[in-house]
Design a protein around this nucleic acid. Structure first.
Lengths: 331, 331
DNA sequence: GCAACGCGTGTAACCGGTTACAGAGTTATG
DNA sequence: CATAACTCTGTAACCGGTTACACGCGTTGC
């Protein structure tokens, strides 16, 4: 028994001949170690839990994909569950996972993560995604930098009045993007009046409503920066209904680079994030935490973003016009 | 020990007072049963594996969501993994899951599921999603019926030459949709010439290419039915480039109702499938199979589809025109 | 008043691995 | 040649639950 265990796990001294015999027998009997038994004696499950606010949409599926890939490579498994952004469900999920996972990846931008700390055993390694937390390690998106890059781009295109559609109050991503917008305005001497910041909640409908509101502002802004793509798409539909051409009459940009961004007309200029990478890094950091329990201070990491210039901001439009002029009207 | 077990699991005879004491102590000690130990003695893990071909995209994330919801309600957990539609990866995933799950949900439209049967222990309950299999139970989409409904709709709109963009060879969904198309043609006396069936592989690029090919056919078809939405979107872009108006010059419809379908211009008429339901039902059937090991013949289920009429087929266009005429030009 | 019975609780075997330790066999060393 | 040192293998305890079974006690029936 002991020798078999040593042979199969490739540890300890085992004669080559014995090892071969064990391996042969294992194959013949289609032997599969019982994970429960192993986890019982080693007190480790080789499984990590991934708790997402919701399982809807491209974004989360990408996070899962990234984490799955990384986990598989290291011989780990992923238990996935959604929390509906609901504290009770979240607590239930965490309770259910106790004892079956070696660590947790938590994503819950709207829920204060530190509040659910009680549900997590003190010794359990945790990495949060897109949330800052005092106690846990985290992987976040550089929302601030992304928003700054967008402002720089819009400023370069000559926009001096840029409206901003806010994300939900209390959402960490939304707050950082707003901060980037404000600092960007200041840096490029762009008007940053309170009436140019319109409420929204990341939903398409709220983007639609916000755009309608914005059209009544005088003097009218020349560009709209929505805190996420879903709201930008909503705004696009509102503008279309009001016969405003994008980008000619109004530039429009978003954040996230959801797949739909490249399918709407005009294609949406936005900020892209390597979402799968988010999942991958979260797992890697978690594995590190599991490895050295010596509770050093929790690891933190920020993923950079990239500006994606498409059609809705007018940059290509302007370039094309310039081009047409310079080549003497040949098209 | 025994009494504690009985109390916590609520089975067997336990005096109320004892039960209360146990519960109280458990709460005070934040007692959490060790899942490995339990699984060791009960030979059950309360966990099921969900193996998807890829973790990309809305479709799969919806399947996960449906399965997660159902699993949670029954106190089960979901181990998720992607197989990349690659037999080796698939085998590795299945091997790794052995012993940690009570059952499997497999989705792998391109891989012949019966071929990987060897990797699955004979006693392991399995439900396949969107694949027919001799040995396992399955949940499938009524692709045939959906395609027939679409043909009926197009026929009612007066189309007599309808082109079809095929899905990948060997894909079960694709084959059924093609069968529905063909039978639909026959049923509504629509031309079903071989040149009207153009190859595709479910990718947007293949839809683009197929549409370009279709424009050279004489006499030209008046409608294009793509075997999935991604190809329909590709076709839409091709038509747009060739200055063909949709639906005026060419009707265009798809299948799946992916989120993008309602964001393109014109909004795509398509066939919708309750994808989350697919995951939910798969889990429910699996649980049944786990429940009565008495190997009755594997359960099978087919989910019905619904035609979603939007703008790309011309139905609303025709209705609007009719309406305009009847109301004397008032818009 | 004693046997039969039922209820509630405790004891111990068992699930299938891992691992400390003992012991057998082999080689190196004095 | 005896002993030490080392290599390999086997034994048994242990991980933390579940559950068959034994047992003690109060109730009922004759």
């Amino acid at each position: 028994m002991a020798t078999v265990s040593r042979a199969l796990n490739g540890i300890g001294p085992v004669r080559k001949a014995t090892l071969d015999r064990v391996m042969e027998a294992a194959r013949a009997l289609r032997f599969v170690p019982h994970s429960g038994a192993r986890s019982l004696s080693t007190r480790t499950t080789h499984t990590v839990g991934l708790v997402l606010p919701d399982l809807h949409g491209e974004f989360f599926s990408e996070v899962i994909r990234g984490a799955d890939l990384a986990a598989r490579r290291r011989g780990y498994h992923l238990i996935v569950s959604g929390s509906h952004n609901n504290p009770d469900d979240m607590a239930a999920v965490l309770r259910a996972m106790r004892g079956r996972v070696d660590g947790l990846i938590l994503m819950s931008p709207e829920l204060a993560v530190d509040a659910i700390v009680d549900e997590v055993p003190a010794a359990m390694p945790v990495i949060t995604v897109n949330v800052e937390s005092k106690r846990f390690g985290s992987v976040t998106i550089d929302n601030y930098d992304g928003a700054r890059a967008m402002l720089r781009h819009l400023a370069a295109l000559g926009h001096a009045r840029i409206a901003f559609i806010l994300g939900p109050r209390g959402n960490a991503d939304a707050a950082e993007r707003l901060r980037g917008y404000r600092d960007g305005c200041r840096a490029h001497s762009i008007v940053n009046a309170p009436e140019l910041e319109i409420g929204g909640d990341f939903s398409e409908a709220s983007g639609y409503a916000a755009a309608l509101q914005l059209l009544d502002i005088r003097p009218q802004p020349t560009a709209i920066f929505a805190a996420n793509d879903a709201m930008a798409v909503g705004a696009l539909f509102a503008l279309r209904e009001k016969q405003m051409r994008v980008p000619e009459d109004m530039a429009l940009v978003g954040f996230d680079d959801i797949p739909i961004a490249r399918y709407v007309t005009p294609r949406l200029t936005t900020v892209t994030v390597a979402i799968a990478e988010l999942g991958r890094r979260a797992f890697e950091l978690l594995l590190e935490s599991i490895g050295n329990k010596s509770s050093r201070r929790p690891p933190r990491e920020t993923l950079s973003t990239t500006l994606v210039v498409r059609d809705s901001c007018g940059a290509r439009h302007a370039a094309a016009k310039r081009n047409r002029r310079s080549t003497g009207g040949i098209t």
